[in-house]
Amino acid sequence: MSLQVPSIHAVPASVGAACVGALLLSAAFRADAAELSGNAALTSDYIWRGSTQTHGDPAVQVGFKIAGDSGLYGSAWASNVEFAPETHASSEFDFTLGWGRSLGADWAIDVNVLHYAYPSTTSDLDWTELNGTVTWKGNYWASLGYSNEALGYGDSGIYGLVGAKWPLNDRLRFEAIAGYYDLKDLDGDHRDDSYAHGSLSAVWALTAAGSKPAVEARFTAHTTSSRAEDFFGDELAGSRVEAALQTSF
Rank of each mutant, 00 (worst) to 15 (best):
W141K: 08
F174W: 06
I109V: 15
L130H: 03
G145I: 06
T128Y: 05
H115Y: 09
W127F: 07
S156E: 08
V134G: 06
S123D: 14
L114M: 04
V134S: 05
G152H: 06
S156N: 02
L130W: 06
G163Y: 01
G132I: 11
W166G: 06
N139Q: 12
G138D: 01
S120L: 03
L130K: 10
G179E: 04
R171M: 08
D155C: 13
G163T: 01
L130R: 11
V113K: 01
G154E: 13
A178Q: 07
W141I: 01
D110T: 02
F174M: 09
G160I: 00
S147H: 08
Y153K: 10
G145P: 10
S123K: 12
G160E: 06
W127A: 11
Y116A: 03
T128D: 02
Y116N: 02
D170Q: 15
N148G: 10
W136I: 03
S120V: 05
G152V: 11
N148Y: 14
S123G: 10
W141S: 05
K137C: 08
N131Q: 13
A164D: 02
L130A: 15
L125C: 03
K165I: 06
V113D: 04
F174H: 01
Y116F: 14
L130P: 02
K165C: 09
W136A: 05
V134R: 09
D170L: 13
I158N: 01
I109W: 07
Y118L: 11
R171C: 07
V134M: 09
N131E: 12
V113A: 08
I109P: 00
A176Q: 15
I177S: 11
